[in-house]
Nucleic acid binder design. Structure first.
Ligand SMILES: [Mn+2]
Ligand SMILES: [Mn+2]
Ligand SMILES: [Zn+2]
Ligand SMILES: [Zn+2]
Lengths: 132, 132
DNA sequence: TCAGTAATAGTAATTATTACTGATAATATG
DNA sequence: CATATTATCAGTAATAATTACTATTACTGA
């Protein structure tokens, strides 16, 4: 993998945030350093970095993909109203996948995703002052 | 919620499969009964059924949303090559979210998603006969 | 230094999903 | 049953997110 300014800044931007940005959000950040960077370059590099397991892509049912420079396994909370994504502030342990089972041996396991969905504090308080 | 033929067949189709189909796949199935049903109708109804918690929508990193008539909590395996989604054949238990914590009380929790990604048996055997 | 080629910027195309609109049909009520 | 109300529909247009294409640029190893 060649070292390019674009790839380096993209990774720096992702490592400099805790907000699990989308490709578009990374793009706007990177533009402050490289004003003429292409959105396609951002998509391509993020996807490449995911492939090489330098970063990870976060699961989601609605909206865009989001990226996370923290590859240590951890769970996420997602707000279904404002699409905020944050790390869970507590450890989550699962029942281990039985590695000696035929099910396991027939597959190659890559990642485990754990996500809790709900309504975040900001959106929750908003919805309590219900509109008429 | 009004009872319509379209909504009934969409739910029947989803309940009649174990393959976690996308909206488009449901559409093509339903067309065998209702040849002129609109794709928008399928999307609208699936989304409505998710809202009413009659079905659930499955997390995914790439491609389309997928739907599941089985609303009993369970985990999924997704193949990163062919996008197959299947139920995990074993129970998964998590550390419970601490309900008396301030973190929990500040939010409203809706769902918990657990997904394992990897390479399915079919794609695994394919990749072992490596092309030259 | 420089040939080879991976990566880029800019743009077009594709894919998945949602929005709009006038017509249709499910339901409630007399 | 008749019919008023209106949720839902089919058909179509629009949007949003992502990917593909292409000529040019700039890493990197020899
Ligand atoms: Mn994270
Ligand atoms: Mn399932
Ligand atoms: Zn929120
Ligand atoms: Zn597969």
């Amino acid at each position: 993998m060649r070292q390019t300014k674009q790839r380096r800044i993209i990774l720096e931007v992702l490592r400099g945030t805790v907000h699990h940005p989308s490709a578009d959000e990374v793009y706007h950040q990177v533009r402050q350093c490289i004003p003429n960077i292409s959105l396609g370059t951002v998509y391509r590099n993020l996807e490449r970095l995911v492939q090489d397991k330098v970063i990870r892509k976060i699961v989601n049912t609605q909206g865009q993909g989001r990226f996370d420079a923290n590859i240590i396994p951890h769970g996420h909370f997602r707000c279904v109203k404002c699409h905020l994504v944050e790390d869970l502030p507590f450890e989550v342990t699962f029942t281990a996948i039985p590695e000696n089972s035929s099910w396991y041996r027939a597959r190659e396991i890559c990642e485990v995703h754990y996500e809790v969905t709900g309504i975040c504090p900001v959106c929750k308080s908003k919805s309590q002052l219900a509109p008429p």
